[in-house]
């Protein structure tokens, strides 16, 4: 089957990130392939290794995000498309740009959410734009003939759903451990083609980010000392009298 995986470059949430003047600032170098998308790439590589097929990746983002496309190629994807666009795009705009590139595949995979926006919208939006059946929050993926069988994590438990192709699945990082590219992969990636072109017809965003703020401050915490019995007695007293939650 032919897979298309949508990948995004995001700031590394474990790196220092600050707010200055309402905007986020971080070292330009501290950006990574969205962890959920890495799982999606891994899933496509595993399935094509077993059943045959190919894996294309597509990314919308600034010029420097090319390294993230390269990373997916180093993992083993076959081809990349990079739609160059600067500035913030909401999920609706991104899905519209992706729709133009991602049609004609058997399976489209996205991450369940981008680690920076934590929106979790672009996958469902893209499916709707392309008129495809889809499943979100997949933790397992299998191929059965022409169908894709997805295990997803729902509110009440694990749901197993069969989808005819073409279809779209959004992937959780609980699905697998994405491979780290090895030297051969990194070197091979350099010779794979990335179709780089400017994003055109970018829809006007209906959602705008006005600015970023720190979390509301929590009252400074308290350490409880002493032996376990004393600690336990004290915390129960505090939970009852001070926090009023018991």
């Amino acid at each position: 089957m032919r897979f298309c995986v949508c990948v995004k470059q995001v700031p590394d949430v474990t790196a220092p990130i600050q707010i200055s003047g309402g905007q986020l600032s971080y070292d330009a170098g501290r950006v990574v392939l969205n962890a959920y998308d890495a799982s999606a790439v891994e899933a496509a590589l595993v399935l094509t290794a077993e059943h045959g097929g190919e894996v294309d990746v597509v990314l919308v983002g600034p010029e420097r995000a090319a390294e993230t496309v390269r990373k997916a190629l180093a993992m083993g994807a076959d081809r990349g498309t990079h739609l160059v666009a600067d500035g913030e795009l909401d999920s609706a705009a991104v899905s519209s740009l992706l729709a133009a590139v991602a049609s004609g595949y058997d399976v489209i995979l996205t991450g369940k959410q981008a680690q920076d926006s934590d929106a979790g919208l672009a996958g469902g939006m893209l499916a709707e734009r392309l008129g495809l059946p889809y499943v979100t929050n997949a933790v397992g993926l299998a191929q059965e003939g022409d169908a894709i069988v997805v295990t997803r994590l729902g509110d009440a438990g694990q749901e197993t759903i069969a989808l005819p192709t073409p279809c779209l699945v959004t992937c959780s990082n609980d699905m697998n451990d994405p491979r780290i590219p090895n030297l051969k992969g990194i070197m091979a990636a350099k010779r794979k083609t990335i179709d780089t072109r400017p994003a055109t017809d970018v829809p006007a965003a209906r959602v705008t980010t006005l600015g970023y703020e720190p979390l509301p401050t929590r009252a400074a915490g308290r350490r409880l000392d002493g032996e376990p019995a004393a600690q336990a007695a004290e915390v129960v007293r505090l939970l009852a009298d001070e926090a009023s939650v018991l």
Binding site: P11, V13, I17, I19, L24, Q115, D116, S117, D118, R206, V207, T208, T209, L210, G211, Y212, E213, P214, L215, P216
Partner: peptide, 15 residues
């Protein structure tokens, strides 16, 4: 809305 693994809040607006 919390963003970046709830490290920050984003003030957003929809039209």
């Amino acid at each position: 809305r919390p963003v970046m693994a709830s490290k920050f809040m984003a003030r957003v607006r929809a039209e």
